[in-house]
Amino acid sequence: MSIVSKSKETITTHKGKAHLWIKDSKGLVFKFDRVAHVVNGGVDLDQMRPDECLLAPGHIYRFNEELSNDELA
């Protein structure tokens, strides 16, 4: 997945700043959902749903159909 745009608004988590949403090269928008759980020094991918993506440093974003249909900057 390649990110082509992201929100200017951010949220601060214990992992750092996360953009409220990101948009990929296919025009799909993913909204920040939560911080990933770390198990034995790595992210446990079993916590993820098929409509989610993981971005460093451990932020999980979930596909958002509503935002994908809107025009975002």
Rank of each mutant, 00 (worst) to 15 (best):
A73R: 11
T10N: 13
E9N: 14
L72W: 00
V39A: 05
F30A: 08
E9K: 15
M48G: 08
H19A: 12
S5D: 02
T12F: 12
C53T: 13
L72I: 02
N40P: 00
R62A: 09
V35M: 03
L67K: 11
Q47K: 09
G58F: 08
A73F: 09
H19Q: 10
R34G: 01
F63A: 11
S5P: 00
T13R: 10
A56Y: 08
F63W: 15
K6H: 08
T12R: 11
V43A: 08
S68F: 06
L55N: 06
K31E: 14
P50A: 10
I3D: 01
I22Q: 04
G58W: 02
C53M: 14
V39W: 02
E66A: 12
R34E: 02
Y61T: 03
L55R: 15
P50N: 09
G41M: 05
M1E: 06
L28W: 06
I60Y: 05
A73L: 10
D51I: 15
L54T: 12
A73K: 14
F63Y: 15
E9P: 00
L45M: 11
G58T: 06
F32T: 03
W21R: 01
S68M: 09
S7M: 10
L54Y: 15
E9W: 05
G41A: 04
S25Y: 08
P57L: 12
S25A: 11
K31R: 14
L45D: 04
K26H: 09
H19L: 05
A73S: 13
K17D: 12
V43I: 14
K15W: 04
L20T: 09
E66G: 11
I11V: 15
F32P: 00
T12S: 14
H59I: 12
H37T: 06
V35E: 07
L55K: 13
E66P: 00
K31G: 00
P57W: 07
E66M: 09
K8Q: 14
E65D: 15
P57A: 14
I60L: 08
I60E: 04
C53W: 11
E71N: 11
S7W: 09
K8E: 14
F32D: 01
L45Y: 13
S68K: 12
R49F: 03
E71G: 01
V29L: 03
G27Y: 04
S7I: 05
H14P: 08
V4C: 02
G42N: 08
K6Y: 09
R49E: 07
I22A: 07
Q47E: 12
F32Y: 13
A36S: 11
R34A: 01
I11R: 09
M1Q: 03
P50E: 06
C53Q: 10
E66Y: 07
H59W: 05
S68P: 03
V39E: 05
N69V: 04
K31C: 03
G42R: 10
V29M: 06
H14D: 11
T12P: 01
K8I: 10
K31Y: 02
G41Y: 04
M48F: 13
K17G: 01
V39F: 04
E52P: 05
T12C: 10
K6C: 04
K23E: 09
S68A: 10
K31A: 08
V38L: 03
G42W: 03
E66T: 15
W21M: 01
V4K: 06
M48A: 09
P57N: 15
H19T: 02
P57M: 13
